[in-house]
Design a protein around this nucleic acid. Sequence first.
DNA 1: TGACACTATGTCAGATATGACATAGTGTCA
DNA 2: TGACACTATGTCATATCTGACATAGTGTCA
Lengths: 113, 113
Amino acid sequence: MKKAKQTKLEAAGWVVGSVKDFLGLSEADAVLIEMKLALSRALRDRRKKYGFSQVQLAERLQSSQSRVAKMEAGDPSVSMELLVSALLLLGASSTDLANAIRRSEKSKGRHAA
Amino acid sequence: MKKAKQTKLEAAGWVVGSVKDFLGLSEADAVLIEMKLALSRALRDRRKKYGFSQVQLAERLQSSQSRVAKMEAGDPSVSMELLVSALLLLGASSTDLANAIRRSEKSKGRHAA
DNA sequence: TGACACTATGTCAGATATGACATAGTGTCA
DNA sequence: TGACACTATGTCATATCTGACATAGTGTCA
């Protein structure tokens, strides 16, 4: 579901609101990125909370320092699943994750008040 | 962070509670699976709410009917990211996702009350 | 200044996920 | 019964992700 999205969907006659309250493609992408960034921040916070270095965390995750750095940097090569797995291994609960995701919501456009 | 987890971690001297309130490896896995199942259910619900067939949804996602079926079945070949992307394209908000994830939490062991 | 611990960035071989296809199963309507 | 729409399952080539490595950047302490 990655490449050639826009053109194909436009060809298929996508119109914002065709079914009502569907998001445009690019907005869904933006929301996903925001969510991943929120998880990145949560990961860094949690690591620091425990006083771990990236190297130490990498050991626990059975990963590498470079990947931990990319996770925390919101690098596009890092999947949401990896971020969530890492957070869970750092003791985060479903509720913690839910909160991080909920908080990722953009404060919206403020079109009307 | 997949294979050979257990043995390596055990060799590294993993003990539940070594840092306190860390989850055991297998529990983190279980939680992740629960979360993905919750998202699967949310996807099916949302698709049905809009009266779409799997084929119709696949078109919107630029995917295929078979993959939609696997998504809804909680097939291990489906990533969390794919589930979330699909939900977002069906108009789910960050809050919706957060709720689904929060609800995925197991009702715990009831060890003490 | 240098030495050190920590973090960031680029690359790549191997592992995993993906869309697509075929095909089978299920339910409904006539 | 058959025809049809929908869903499930298996497979596969290709796309994407991952851990690992090298190396560069940053901060701190002496």
